[in-house]
C-alpha cells in the first residue's frame, strides 16, 4: 500500500461523489480521469489492493478505463 494509492482512492471516490449530478456519472468520471490523470495513476489504482474501498460509481469507472 502506498501513499499514492491512498490518495488515488480518495480522489476517485470524491470525483465520483461530485459527478452524481451528471447524466451518466460513470462516463463523467471516466472522462475526468482521461483528462486529468496520468496513465500510471490509473494503472496504479487498478493494480492496488484498495479497489474494495471504491464507491460504486468509482469502481465502475475504473473498470471501464
Amino acid at each position: 500500500m502506498s501513499s499514492s494509492s491512498d490518495s488515488l482512492v480518495r480522489m476517485i471516490n470524491q470525483i465520483a461523489a461530485n459527478s452524481m449530478g451528471a447524466h451518466d456519472p460513470v462516463a463523467a468520471v471516466v472522462k475526468h480521469l482521461h483528462s486529468f490523470w496520468t496513465p500510471k495513476m490509473c494503472s496504479d489504482l487498478k493494480s492496488s489492493n484498495l479497489t474494495s474501498e471504491l464507491n460504486a460509481v468509482a469502481a465502475q469507472a475504473l473498470a471501464a478505463l
Binding site: S2, S7, W37, T38
Partner: peptide, 18 residues
C-alpha cells in the same frame, strides 16, 4: 499526449519513491 502529475500527485509519488 497524456496528462502529467499535479503537485500533490508528485509529492505522493515522491513518498512512494517514484
Amino acid at each position: 499526449a497524456e496528462p502529467g502529475l499535479r503537485i500533490p500527485n508528485m509529492l505522493d509519488s515522491a513518498i512512494d519513491g517514484e
